[in-house]
Amino acid sequence: MTSFDSKSVNKLSIVSTLVDAAIAFSRGRKKSGLLLVGAAALSSRVPGLGTAVSLFLRLVRRLR
Rank of each mutant, 00 (worst) to 15 (best):
L36K: 01
S16M: 15
S32I: 01
G33M: 04
L57S: 04
S13W: 03
S54H: 02
S13Y: 08
R64C: 08
L36F: 00
I14A: 04
L18R: 06
F56D: 04
T51Y: 03
P47M: 12
F4N: 12
R29D: 10
S44F: 15
V15G: 02
L59A: 03
V53S: 07
S13F: 01
A41F: 12
S16T: 12
D20F: 12
S54Q: 05
S16P: 10
P47E: 08
L49S: 06
R58S: 11
A22D: 09
V19Q: 01
S3E: 13
D5G: 13
V53L: 01
S54T: 09
K31Q: 02
L42H: 01
S54E: 07
R62F: 11
L18V: 07
K11W: 09
A24P: 03
R61Q: 12
D20A: 15
V53Q: 00
S16L: 15
G50W: 02
R27K: 15
S8E: 14
L49Q: 10
D5I: 02
L36E: 00
V60K: 06
A22Q: 12
V37F: 08
A24I: 00
D5A: 01
F25L: 13
L12K: 01
P47H: 11
L42N: 03
S13D: 07
S3V: 15
L35S: 13
S44C: 13
S54R: 04
K30H: 04
R45I: 05
V9K: 13
S54G: 15
R62I: 02
A40C: 12
A24H: 00
S44H: 08
K31I: 04
V37M: 07
T51N: 00
F4W: 13
R62Y: 07
S13E: 09
L55A: 05
S43D: 13
V37T: 08
S44N: 07
A41V: 15
V60D: 05
R58E: 09
T2Y: 12
D20R: 14
L49W: 04
R27Q: 13
S8P: 04
V9N: 10
P47F: 15
